[in-house]
């Protein structure tokens, strides 16, 4: 456990050194600039747009961190041969995988928290400067705590994407890993369509294949509750718990597979 922690802290430290956190500055500047512009252009709709924009940006920024650091977590160590000295230390290979994963999830958590705080600050500022009657036209308050479940699920989704990237990078090149991860990210949003597939095809084989794929591929759409939250629809605790549970199970399976492959690899 302590070993996994040390490796995780090292990953976090490296990402800070690699200036990954600079993306937060970019995020803040974009968000503030956008909200200023939107405030000039629209009337009444602006809070909703900014919420949409802020949540989407959190997801996209996080996605890039998850994929581009995720694919390098293991492959960079192998490519640069730093893995030779690392693995000669008293660590087991599964601890290396779990530590790397935990480190990137920690990095993502810090990023998501800071991005969410920035979003709340911008929204809070809007709420502070607007008149009471103007605020009455808002569907939901600006700094709406109901956004928190949506932000949490964005984070949970990113944790799943990180596991995908890490899994692919244990056996394929960084570029292929990135392509596969982004590919699955997109497919994962349309996964539910595979379920309807069987009703439109005649071939039973195709139907079985569709069903197998439906269960094997990650379902990412359930993690996206941004639109619901922005439009004031409630997201229940039960829903968040269920979706998180699904994500955790999927992550566990991916990490297990990654450990299985990684433990058998020759570092030649």
């Amino acid at each position: 456990m302590a070993i996994i922690g040390r490796i995780a802290v090292h990953v976090f430290k490296e990402s800070v050194r690699d200036k990954v956190l600079y993306n937060l500055v970019l995020f803040a500047v974009l968000l503030i600039a956008a909200s200023y512009l939107i405030g000039q252009l629209t009337a009444g709709q602006d809070v909703k747009i900014i919420k949409d924009l802020g949540l989407a940006a959190t997801q996209i920024f996080g996605l890039f961190i998850a994929v581009f650091i995720g694919i390098g977590l293991v492959s960079k160590e192998v490519e640069r041969r730093s893995i030779y000295s690392l693995l000669s230390k008293p660590i087991r290979r599964h601890e290396l995988i779990l530590g790397k994963y935990a480190g990137l999830v920690l990095t993502l958590a810090v990023n998501v928290v800071v991005m969410a705080a920035t979003l709340y600050l911008v929204l809070g500022y809007m709420s502070w400067v607007e008149s009471e009657e103007f605020k009455a036209t808002w569907l939901r308050p600006a700094a709406d705590p109901a956004m928190l479940p949506a932000i949490f699920l964005v984070f949970a989704q990113l944790a799943l994407v990180t596991a995908l990237a890490l899994f692919f990078s244990t056996f394929s090149s960084p570029i292929l890993s990135a392509v596969l991860t982004f590919g699955l990210y997109v497919v994962g949003h349309f996964n539910a369509d595979l379920r309807n597939f069987e009703s439109v095809v005649d071939s039973t084989a195709a139907a079985y294949l569709a069903r197998a794929l439906y269960y094997a591929l990650p379902s990412l759409a359930p993690f996206d509750v941004k639109a619901a939250v922005v439009h004031g629809e409630p997201v229940t605790f039960g829903y968040v718990a269920m979706t998180t549970g699904y994500g955790a199970a999927y992550v566990a399976a991916l990490l297990l597979a990654a450990v299985f492959i990684f433990s058998r690899r020759d570092f030649k």
Partner: peptide
Amino acid sequence: GYLPELPYFYDNLSAEELLIYFGGLF
């Protein structure tokens, strides 16, 4: 202890930080 052939470590760490990291693993 093991010195790999033509060793390479982490660009962004100092020698001291590397040793502290590895020491921590022990």
